[in-house]
């Protein structure tokens, strides 16, 4: 049952973008087309899932050695190395996927959603075990993908509407995000 709570919580209730404001840069930057939004989303799900497991293990080591204070440095290094590794592996084994995801992969290093989920996973007050951390990582990524793809759908329609000049671009996107966020607050009663 706790697993189900984590999954629903990560996708809807504590949606990374619309409720916790993590990963807003790619949300605003890569949400012009549904295809690229989906590509970015899948790349993020993948990196967040793998990063959740590795940072969880790294944190166990840090605690064992009594050097928890370098957590931030250790995590960001792990994530940067992981993203690089993923890029090399995908490039080597699946050029098609690389062409689709390639441009987004380097961006993920500075996506605060990935570091955010890594830090949340090891926060003592949550007390996640490895499987829960992994699920939280994967499904936070799914929540991110859901929000960014929905947003891209809205923006594809927005292109055709007559928007006042001062609202074009980011402002109208933020206003649309605000309405989406209001809709997502309704999920708050689910847990």
């Amino acid at each position: 049952m706790t697993y189900l709570y984590i999954i629903i919580g990560a996708i809807f209730v504590n949606n990374f973008i619309l409720a916790q404001f993590l990963g807003i840069c790619p949300f605003l930057g890569v949400s012009k087309k549904t295809d690229s939004a989906l590509g970015m989303g899948i790349a993020v799900i993948f990196v967040m899932g793998v990063a959740s497991i590795i940072t969880y293990a790294v944190n166990l080591l840090l605690v064992k050695w009594g050097v928890e204070y370098i957590q931030t440095i250790a995590f960001i290094l792990v994530i940067a190395a992981l993203v690089q590794l993923v890029e090399i592996v995908i490039k080597r084994f699946s050029p098609g996927l690389y062409n689709a995801l390639g441009v987004y992969l380097p961006l993920i290093t500075t996506n605060c959603a990935v570091l955010g989920v890594a830090i949340v996973n090891v926060t003592p007050s949550y007390g996640y075990n490895l499987i829960q951390a992994f699920l939280n990582g994967i499904f936070s990524g799914v929540g991110f993908t859901l929000a960014i793809v929905l947003m891209a759908g809205i923006r594809e329609k927005l292109v055709h509407s007559d928007i006042p000049e001062s609202f074009r671009g980011f402002p109208i996107t933020l206003v649309a995000a605000s309405i989406m966020s209001m809709a997502f607050t309704a999920f708050g009663g689910m847990i």
Partner: peptide, 25 residues
């Protein structure tokens, strides 16, 4: 209270950015 919650953050940011754009236009 909605302005202090998540939706209000997006809304106020969007409106402020539009205001800044208006000034520069």
């Amino acid at each position: 209270s909605v302005i202090a919650m998540a939706p209000g953050g997006f809304l106020v940011y969007g409106l402020m950015m539009a205001a800044v754009n208006q000034i520069s236009i």
